[in-house]
Design a protein around this nucleic acid. Sequence first.
DNA 1: AAAAGCCCCTGGATGC
DNA 2: TGCATCCAGGGGCTTT
Length: 271
Amino acid sequence: MPELPEVEVTRLGFASAIAGARIVAVRMGKPLRWPLGCEPVSLSGQQVHTVRRRGKYLLLDVDQGILLLHLGMSGSLAFTADPGEPGKHDHFDLHTSAGVLRLHDPRRFGAAVWVPGEDSPQARKLLGHLGVEPLDAGFDLSAFCTAMRQRIAPVKQVLLAGEVVVGVGNIYASEALFQAGIRPTTRAARLSRPRLARLHHAVRDVLTRAVAKGGSTLRDFSNTQGESGYFQLEAMVYGRAGQPCKVCDTPIRSIRQGQRATFFCPQCQKA
DNA sequence: AAAAGCCCCTGGATGC
DNA sequence: TGCATCCAGGGGCTTT
């Protein structure tokens, strides 16, 4: 479910509330994607300082190291004073003096991993290859063009890979390419600078608007208060196969790229 | 170095 | 309230 906007909405929902709280206990459910990487009890007593985001990872700075959280495909976090008994898909609880942060993740592609520091091998394995943050000032057009020109793969898959720019998942890749008027199958290296400039702007614009709408809730995404996002209502192409393009009425097409669905308008995105 | 496939896992929708 | 099949917002790993 969660792409950059959903992860950022999640972060905003509990970052200030948990800052300064002390970890009281950790409860683990069924195994997630990776082991925690430390004894759960060793986290107890540590203070949570800040909650940052890198791509689709959340980074909780604690006294000793960093707790990385990832929502995978089906994860969501809730932060509440009294969460009640954990359900069958609640696989990680961080009990703190300010409330309980609970990871709900039916498919268990998500993760909670402790790493000793940002430069540790454990952290580098997960974060080291990530591209630039699209909402940061460091998302520079020239650097974006240089990186895209190195890639012969279809532009949609280059966006998804997260090595040039992070945070763009399956929904927002299709949406950004529609906004930029670029066919998802076009090889990244073949895009002219003006078209890359349109894409650069579209990525930032789509993600920013999605954060403002609380993200997209296609199935089960909810923020830390359990509320849905609304950006899916504004989707121009994602999930709209066969329906008329909102701009030109041409039926939206669906194709598969790297075992993921891609949506585009054959009229508005000619090349 | 980069690209393409595979796989992790559960549940909902659809078809028979 | 039976299957079997396909699909789903991610991404690391292995193989080309």
